[in-house]
Design a binder for these strands. Structure first.
Length: 558
DNA sequence: ACTGCATGCAACC
DNA sequence: TGGTTGCCCTGCAG
């Protein structure tokens, strides 16, 4: 562009500053271009001219143009307005006051002062009962409920300490985890790239990654109920795979994209998946709202696809009732979780539609009785229906909890503890961080979903990434969590610190380093076995701090 | 140690 | 319906 021409065309430039005393050295800060879009190079040029004192050459009045105002005042990166700034102050995140609360999504306050943050219940909302309570229920709530123990303490053993881990095990973020149904120490993990990991977390270094099963995101995995040597996986590449665990050889049961890439509007992805062993079918659902049934014995699709959610919307979760094989639960991006009768799977014939305010990431029947429902929705609320035989118009409880959607995160899913006979313990990772002794950490939360009580929040100073993927072991007091590309195994503190166990607390570092985690875990060699005690964190003084338990002591701090 | 880009996806115009 | 945007996010390259 010719400078001569521009000189005559440009109006006067006014520069606003935070304070008059500020020097030009601070001028590389964010620039608020209120007078419309100006390219970066242009605005820089203007600044230079303004500084040179040549403003009169571009006098706006002579050219009949209004002056351009360039504000160098500090602006909020969220709302782009001045007077405040959102972001981390040390390890504490300061919200933008112009936005609704990041936790409960209500306007008028920020996360810092959110009422759901200071209660020990972490924000339980009694769901609206529209005069549906009968006298019996009132008696129960008023006289019996208060005398009931909140949760049977004997059943609550929280795996609160990292026992072993594989750092950067996957080359992309972990999307799903599954424990082997019979071999206690085998953990399966799927990732965004389509790879499937098999790890023996007691022998730690016995790990394998199968890279040729899927070509993109592994969304769900389930073991074959009749042969636990094989596992099914549903992927965004539009296929279901059935893989032999020993050999890694897999067969494709179904391919929704037989003709390859025909544009984004035609590419079908498989998300929700479960197995109904009674009926011998694998159920999968796609991103257009359809459900498919695949016969396990013949490995072939049975019947036509059935529209079970809004046409064109993603069905992210499927769950077969553990007790009543006729009942199916689905959830998806149309903001509904739906209960179906397997004998009548037909568009529009769901038994119940459970409404949510946002996308439903997951919906599960309770693992033992199958009579409760727990859902995770992107409106930052867990919802619990205490009985599928009761009134399903409204959830029995809503628990406000930070687990927003984010482009870079695997969607959070609250998972039942399959060992808890009272069916009240659930685990879910937390999005927002908390300032723990100067480190911003994202805990993994354990809830008593029968009361909304936050039973425990576990974290480790070395894990600074968010852990959206969590799974509790079907028999042992073990939690597996997937955080970014790494996998962590948590055990109860006592167990972890016992002499026999101590030697087994191993961290394996593998894969290409990313800055965040290499800083914490050291990154000298591929597959080197680092003892956890060697780990350092600049903000953490002692290893003892690693785990903080019980929400009660933290009351008032939050 | 920065910054910028691509990612990939729901929400909101 | 299509285009644009994005609160605590990822990973990588320059």
């Amino acid at each position: 562009m010719a400078p001569q021409r521009r000189r005559t065309a440009f109006p006067k430039v006014v520069i606003e500053r935070d304070t008059d005393s500020e020097q030009s050295s601070s001028e590389d800060e964010e620039v608020d271009q209120e007078e419309g879009p100006v390219s970066e190079s242009e605005s820089q040029e203007e600044e230079v001219r303004a500084e040179n004192g040549n403003e009169e050459k571009f006098d706006a009045r002579k050219k009949g143009k209004s002056p351009i105002t360039i504000s160098l005042k500090k602006v909020c990166k969220v709302c782009k307005k001045g007077g405040h700034e959102a972001g981390f102050k040390g390890a504490t995140y300061i919200d933008c006051p112009m936005k609704p609360c990041f936790l409960c999504k209500m306007p008028g306050h920020t996360t810092m002062t959110c009422p759901h943050r200071v209660t020990t219940e972490h924000g339980v909302i009694s769901a609206p009962h529209r005069n549906t309570r009968n006298p019996l229920e009132y008696v129960f709530e008023r006289q019996l409920r208060p005398s009931m123990p909140l949760i049977k303490p004997a059943h609550v053993v929280i795996p609160d300490q990292v026992n072993c881990a594989v750092i950067r095990y996957h080359s992309r973020r972990v999307t799903c985890l599954e424990f082997h149904p019979t071999k206690n120490n085998i953990l399966l993990s799927g990732d965004k790239k389509g790879q499937v990991g098999v790890w023996d977390f007691c022998k730690v270094s016995e790990k394998m990654v199968y890279g040729n099963i899927h070509s993109c995101i592994v969304n769900n995995m389930r073991f074959n109920p009749t042969n636990d040597g094989t596992v099914y996986a549903a992927s965004s590449d539009g296929t279901i795979s059935c893989t032999d665990m020993e050999t890694g050889i897999s067969v494709s049961l179904m391919n929704l994209n037989p003709n390859g890439w025909q544009g984004p509007n035609n590419w079908r992805m498989l998300y929700g998946m479960d197995i109904n062993s009674e009926k011998g079918v694998v159920l999968v659902a796609d991103n257009f709202g359809f459900l498919y049934l695949v016969d396990i014995r013949s490995n072939s699709k049975s019947g036509d696809a059935i529209l079970i959610h809004k046409k064109g919307s993603k069905v992210v979760g499927l769950h077969c009732n553990p007790i009543q094989p006729e009942l199916l639960l689905s959830c998806g991006n149309d903001h509904f979780a739906r209960i179906w009768d397997m004998r009548r799977l037909e568009a529009g014939y769901s038994l119940y539609d459970l409404a949510h305010r946002r996308v439903v990431n997951s919906a599960y029947f309770s693992p033992l009785s199958g009579s409760k429902i727990l859902t995770t929705s992107q409106d930052n609320r867990l919802r619990i229906w205490d009985s599928i035989f009761g009134n399903l118009d409204y959830p029995s409880r809503e628990i406000v909890h930070s687990h927003d959607f984010n482009r870079h995160l695997t969607p959070f899913r609250a998972e039942w503890d399959p060992k808890d006979p009272s069916e009240s313990l659930a685990v879910i990772g937390r999005y927002i961080s908390e300032n723990y002794n100067g480190a911003a950490l994202h805990p993994i939360d354990f809830f008593d979903i029968s009361t909304g009580q936050l039973v425990a929040e576990v974290m480790d100073p070395n894990i600074t990434t968010i852990s959206p993927v969590n799974k509790l072991h079907p028999r042992d007091d073990v939690l597996a969590s997937g955080s970014s590309r790494s996998i962590f195994i948590w055990r109860p503190k006592e167990e972890s610190e016992s002499v026999e166990q101590k030697d087994e607390r191993k961290i394996i570092v593998c894969g290409k380093a990313d800055k965040k985690q290499s800083r914490k875990f050291g990154d000298d060699s591929e597959d080197s076995d680092d003892d956890i005690s060697k780990l350092k964190h600049k903000n953490v003084k002692s290893k003892k701090f690693a785990i903080e338990l019980t929400p009660y002591s933290r009351k008032g701090k939050r």
